[in-house]
Nucleic acid binder design. Structure first.
Lengths: 235, 235
DNA sequence: GGAATGCTTCGGCCCCGACCGTAGCATCGA
DNA sequence: TCGATGCTACGGTCGGGGCCGAAGCATTCC
């Protein structure tokens, strides 16, 4: 966050194949570790470390230290917008034959996808809205919380939040509930242990299933019924 | 227009100081010669020629041959949008204290300027606000629209939106109306075909004129009257 | 405690590409 | 026809930076 930040400097940062792959991977709003990003970029961890350091000092990425892991995410929606405009342009300029098939996949991603370990897209935001409206959860700035009524509600539909926050009988240090700005909806959805518990429960109950092994998920017929009866959601 | 056009390739093209200066200079939508662009980039003509060739084959620039001159311009509004998003990010990431020396030239830029092919700055935002307040246009998120009343309004002041959206008798695929976040005002102004039509009309009617051949424009006396009577704007 | 894991720093290699000087093509004005 | 101008093509130089191997901290697990 030191240098004078010219257009050329920003573009040069995104102009390296390895760094571009990292930025593109982080476009879903997740926070990934340096090793994971090294993998997607196809470089060794020490090389990735250098790239991540440059992206971070430039202000494009934000890091969150958690134990021996360092989670990297896009620093702001504006960075996502910049990457998005690059993607659009790349898709347009690519020879029509070799254009990445647009449409169903993108539509699926915007409808419902996983964001790290919780749900995002229209589904994730709709779930969050429903929980907020019902008074089961609250969001205030960067903080989130589940109300007492919410705890009972989750228990009633089979989501044990006690179990979700403990591992090996010991309390996890993980953030219990926090809002996460949705990349496509530009509105918050629930993350943290609560978001993860909802997501894994939805998978276990067969409400949703992965599409093509990508981040996109599809809501099953059973899931539609469950979401309507439990949350009052008609996606 | 050959290679597969990845994000990294596009960004790398914009990541060179000389090429970035060229792209930035072309942001006003004009077409400049190679020599002029070499001047603003601070390189020799032969170096600039190489840069321009790369930008052109990549599809970022379009060339128009006229005699012994070759006029270069941005290939599409999408390129302008990409450069715009880079500018925004650069302005945001720059240390607040040492932002480029603010002077009369900057003041003129902030007051009124062209953004590719439409109006920006205080003038652009004021025009947009007036249109929104009068119900002539609407903005919802990333989408914009002109109302039926708006169409009649524009026709009344001599702006034919039908003509603006058709080319050679066929409907252009260009986005009709979209909001564009103003770099200096941090609020949206109108872009797309509508924004372009307003801008060109303002030039044709002598409401505004260029300053020093830069992106800045000055509102003429005639323009002040027209803006006040037609839009109710007192800049 | 010791070992394993995640990440960073350091040093050195090496390639890409930005730059210019020179020279070669087009076009315009006499 | 002959310069003058605008632009491009080629060759050579050289500096930045991407890459990895080796080594050094920090943290966690057993």
């Amino acid at each position: 966050m030191v240098s004078t930040a010219t257009i050329a400097e920003i573009a040069a940062l995104a102009g390296d194949p390895a760094r571009a792959a990292m930025l593109n991977t982080l476009m879903d709003g997740r926070a990934l570790t340096a090793t994971e990003l090294a993998s997607v970029a196809g470089v060794t961890p020490q090389t990735a470390s250098g790239h991540l350091a440059r992206l971070t000092t430039a202000g494009l990425l934000a890091v969150e230290k958690q134990g021996r892991h360092r989670y990297h995410r896009l620093a702001s929606p504006m960075v996502a917008q910049m990457v998005e405009s690059l993607s659009q342009l790349a898709a347009t300029l690519a020879p029509p034959g070799r254009r990445v098939a647009t449409g169903p996949r993108d539509l699926a991603l915007r409808t419902a996808r996983t964001c790290y370990d919780h749900l995002a897209g229209r589904l994730g935001v709709a779930l969050t809205d429903a929980l907020l409206d019902a008074g089961h959860a609250e969001i205030d700035g960067d903080a989130g919380a589940v109300t007492d009524g919410g705890l009972a509600f989750f228990a009633g539909i089979g989501i044990d939040l006690e179990r979700a926050t403990t591992r090996n009988g010991r309390r996890s240090s993980r953030v219990f509930c926090r809002p996460c700005l949705d990349w496509s909806e530009r509105r918050p959805h629930l993350a943290g242990a609560v978001g993860a518990a909802i997501c894994s429960h939805a998978f276990e109950q067969g409400w949703i299933r992965r599409v093509d092994g990508s981040r996109a998920v599809a809501v099953t017929r059973k899931g539609e019924q469950a979401l309507r009866s439990a949350f009052g959601i008609a996606l």
